[in-house]
Design a protein around this nucleic acid. Structure first.
Ligand SMILES: [Mn+2]
Ligand SMILES: [Mn+2]
Ligand SMILES: [Zn+2]
Ligand SMILES: [Zn+2]
Lengths: 148, 148
DNA sequence: ATTGCGGATTAGACTCATTCTAACTGATTA
DNA sequence: TAATCAGTTAGAATGAGTCTAATCCGCAAT
């Protein structure tokens, strides 16, 4: 079930695309709405299959293009675990990812500023880092479809 | 220039292979010695090219096999950055990886126990993690070939 | 010494997520 | 209207990694 974007989400999309000189299109709205509808870190194929329900003519190439556009706009993060297919996450708050070994589900883990600081503090002098990626692998019990 | 294994490294290899019911072979010794010689997180192809100097008949398939064997023995860690080729690291101490955007070089960053604890502490109840992967992306100044 | 066994090695085929290419679409502008 | 140009599309190409099946080789039983 694909709901369309709220006004506020549509503005968010428009603002980010405009900022980087790109246009709002029906395909981009659809793909973005898929990401916002279920925040379960879908793969490209999962996004493709969900988006096709609302827009049957949509091509896989376009899904790749839209997701790449969103990443380059800073609207969406790529999430990689080992060598599996790339997943996509619209959560812009600083967070880590927890991969449940049993279910394969990926959960967001909030990242408090003091933990980020403690991580930066382990860098030797001369090392300057813009991006820190943290991923946990393990088991999460009692996580139903509402836990992200 | 491929130096052969020290006695202590050879024992380390033998012990880990025996423990998991696998054999020490000339190919495994060669590949392992390549990983120990330059701790620069080489890709499979880099390992292959270096190892062929000491053992010209060695095949790429065998390099893949050896590295997989080492990983399953706990002798070596796989290191992934985004979707790039997998790299291999023989450093068994808990550490994070720092990827230099300019040079592409991957550096080990020591991970003190209290930082690991602070990371584990951000997991909500019910989340149990065996593996934590941390990777930094940024620039490292003044890192010559001696810095790992 | 020969044989049989089983793990290891090898070349090459195959997979498949991702990237690339080139044609087409459709909105906007001259 | 015609030109322009970003975006979309189908399908081809790429390439890291995996799989397959043949061969090799060290070791132990005869
Ligand atoms: Mn990862
Ligand atoms: Mn990574
Ligand atoms: Zn996320
Ligand atoms: Zn390392």
């Amino acid at each position: 079930m694909i709901q369309s974007l709220t006004d506020s989400d549509r503005e968010h999309l428009q603002e980010a695309l405009n900022r980087s000189g790109q246009k709002v299109t029906a395909q981009r709205e659809t793909v973005f709405s898929v990401l916002l509808a279920e925040r379960d870190h879908p793969t490209v194929d999962e996004v493709f299959n969900r988006a096709r329900e609302a827009m049957p003519g949509l091509s896989l190439a376009t899904v790749y293009n839209c997701l790449e556009t969103f990443v380059s706009c800073g609207l969406v993060r790529q999430v990689n675990h080992e060598r599996e297919s790339t997943r996509y996450c619209p959560n812009l708050a600083p967070h880590a990812h927890f991969r449940d070994k049993e279910t394969g589900r990926v959960h967001d883990i909030e990242l408090p500023p003091e933990v980020i600081k403690s991580l930066r503090s382990i860098l030797p002098p001369g090392f300057d880092s813009e991006v820190i990626e943290i991923s946990f692998l393990g088991r999460a019990q009692g996580t139903d479809k509402n836990s992200n």
